[in-house]
Amino acid sequence: MAAGGPRAPDAPAPLYALTGVTKTFYKKRRTIYALRDLNLVIRAGDWLAVQGRTGQGKTTLLQILGGLDRPDSGAVIFGGEDIAQMREVHLTRMRAESVGFIFQTFNLVGTLSAADNVEAALIPLGIRAAERRRRVSAALENVGLADRARHLPSELSGGQQQRVAIARALVKEPRVVLADEPTGNLDEYTRDEMVALLEKLWRTLNLTLVIVTHDTRVARHARRIGTMTKGRLTINTVNEHR
């Protein structure tokens, strides 16, 4: 049975439906099973937190969900299309239009200002410059960094950099946000601030959010919490009230 569980009559349609997804890496004659026959359903508006020790396949799952990598076998249906079989050009388009990424190390371009980093997410969409500027301002406003728009990443704290990364992920109004250890490089206080921000945005923007994290205090904010063990995902907790 898919890790998404049975669908309630009024539940939203699945955004993702993964069936029999397998991904294997070969390292020094060793075979590493990052994902083994993984089945998962993620509905629109869901918040899934994936926990697990290092090397259990969490990041691989996120990369396959985001179209950054392809499974060896299985289907990854996203919005009705199997992205595992999609041509590279369509996959790139899918990432540009529908997926927002948040990385543990923020991955901001060091030479670009906060505003330019956020704007970079709109470049592939062919949006006019004036509209881009408007949306960038709104996104930075949303994360409380309107006054730091011209600052370079090196002039911002870790928390502020992650806010810029969140603004960059959200500025394109994606269908899903995929966050890989988004609080991994932050102190506790900033981590809590960041989680509070993500939760606020999730609620107000009706986001679909998938977070990979070690941190239980981050994971417990999610609607569903799963654990990855040796490439298999088990959903342990479902917070129906969230």
Partner: peptide, 16 residues
């Protein structure tokens, strides 16, 4: 590499 990987993740085409 990471910068270009990030741009690819943002949906930038290799050509761009």
């Amino acid at each position: 590499g990471r910068e270009f990987g990030t741009l690819k993740a943002l949906g930038w085409r290799s050509r761009r």
